[in-house]
């Protein structure tokens, strides 16, 4: 475990905690994309099925349980607890456009033709595009709650930090993971616009508003 990966995991965790606190505090899920949360739940469930047959460490197991349960909890908050606050009419990105290419990529680029490896690869590709409904929604509404913006930022930082993690692991262990590395690059590229606006507006204490 190196510092990049550890900070990445912490920022990933922080993003989820921020989102849960926001929804609970404001008793509203306005501005949060249900579709993005659903895709993340799918990412975690398809990737972490190995929890039952592949033990790595207590840290690893704990984090997997955290990501699966917290994301399903967010779905519950949005779908049941604070349902009226979520407006499906502005959450209109077609998730087939993310799921289908991810499935195709998983079938072409994977670490072996077993159900587990294909699901793993699918989850990695899916994760790189899962933020799109949320970014699309942000673009439609033009502005967002500060906390929603911090949530997206923390989530972006998490995958950005996995890039130096992979460079570090290549240098120190000689390990290369082309699938996760490429997916990290794609995901970070999708965030680049967002990062730019975050930097020019939110960091300077202004409200998040799209130009």
């Amino acid at each position: 475990m190196n510092i990049f990966r550890f900070l990445a995991d912490l920022s990933h965790m922080a993003s989820i905690v921020i989102l849960i606190l926001q929804i609970r505090k404001t008793k509203s899920a306005a501005g949060v994309s249900y579709k993005t949360q659903f895709l993340y739940a799918l990412v975690f469930v398809t990737r972490y099925i190995d929890i039952f047959f592949h033990y790595v460490s207590l840290y690893n197991t704990f984090m997997k349980i955290f990501f699966v349960t917290s994301t399903i909890y967010i779905l519950y908050l949005m779908r049941v607890q604070y349902k009226p606050s979520h407006d499906p009419n502005i959450d209109t990105f077609r998730i087939e456009y993310i799921i289908a290419p991810s499935a195709v990529l998983a079938l072409i680029i994977n670490h072996g033709y077993t159900l587990y490896e294909i699901l793993w690869s699918f989850s990695v590709w899916l994760e790189s595009g899962a933020i799109l409904p949320q970014l699309f929604m942000l673009q439609r509404t033009g502005e967002a709650e500060t906390l929603t913006v911090h949530y997206i930022f923390a989530l972006g930082i998490y995958r950005l930090l996995y890039i130096p993690n992979w460079i570090y692991r290549y240098v120190t262990e000689g390990r290369v993971e082309p699938i996760a590395f490429l997916a990290s690059l794609i995901q970070t590229a999708l965030y680049s616009d967002f990062f730019y606006i975050y930097y020019t507006k939110v960091m300077q204490g202004k409200k998040f508003e799209l130009p």
Binding site: R5, D9, H12, D50, H54, V56, S57, N60, M63, K64, F67, H111, G112, E117, W120, R169, Y170, E173, G174, R175, V176, E177, P178, A180
Partner: peptide, 10 residues
């Protein structure tokens, strides 16, 4: 370089 799968990450 080792190209095989790394299963120890999240």
């Amino acid at each position: 370089a080792v190209w095989n799968k790394v299963h120890d990450e999240l």
